[in-house]
Design a protein around this nucleic acid. Structure first.
Length: 202
DNA sequence: ATAGTGATAACCT
DNA sequence: GGTTATCACTATT
């Protein structure tokens, strides 16, 4: 196996940490995922849960780096973030997608018979479900369960998915061409993108 | 394209 | 106290 990332890796700015997490592996509950897509969030960012300061919900984002922030949304989905930055500053990296590289059977079991292997962890709530994350995992220390990538991954940056505010900040990072990256969807209510960000024609 | 689902936080009294 | 809009999404049509 490869080397676990230590706490100092996560104590830096989430925007710096996020691209470096691509290609790294995360293990939880008998499943390991190789990360292909992440997004950075931080306190000075209107799209972040931590923007308005600490609340009961977001407390762990303000705690020590390397812990896991799990939030519940849309009445049915969990998503997981790795907490970054100094204690007291609410920042982290949302794990958006990856490839299940170990514990395939457990992941298939959790995701149900309709999920293809490609879709086991392609999407933040799918990834969280494949790793078995739920309420009880909020605040877990992940040091020792996140492993450096063998070789540096190629990285592209672009706007984040599914948010209405600061929708153009290029804080989504992914491995170009990787088939385990989630399909990009801008939030329907987000302001229109700048011309250079739009697809030409259609 | 849209239904489904419930917690959260902001805004009221 | 109570009400309500919003939501870092997914599966299905």
């Amino acid at each position: 196996m490869s080397t676990p990332l230590d706490r100092s890796f996560f104590e830096r700015d989430s925007v710096t940490v996020a691209p470096e997490l691509l290609g790294c592996a995360v293990s939880a509950n008998g499943v390991t995922v190789r990360l292909t897509e992440v997004e950075a969030y931080r306190q000075d960012d209107p799209a972040s849960h931590t923007f308005r300061g600490p609340t009961k919900r977001t407390a762990v984002m303000f705690g020590p780096a390397g812990h896991l922030y799990v939030y519940f949304t849309y009445g049915m989905h969990y998503c997981g973030n790795l907490v970054c930055g100094p204690e007291g500053f609410g920042a982290g990296v949302l794990l958006r997608a990856g490839e299940v590289v170990d514990g395939l059977d457990a992941a298939r079991e959790r995701r149900g018979p309709r999920a293809t292997d490609r879709d086991l962890a392609r999407g933040p709530a799918r990834l969280a479900q494949a790793l078995g994350w739920g309420r009880d995992d909020n605040g877990r220390d992940m040091i020792g369960a996140v492993y450096a990538s063998a070789e540096p991954a190629a990285v592209l940056a672009g706007p984040r998915t599914g948010i209405t505010k600061a929708a153009d900040a290029a804080w989504r990072f992914w491995i170009p061409g990787d088939r385990f990256v989630s399909p990009y969807k801008r939030h329907p209510k987000a302001p229109a993108a700048e011309a250079e960000d739009r697809e030409p024609g259609r």
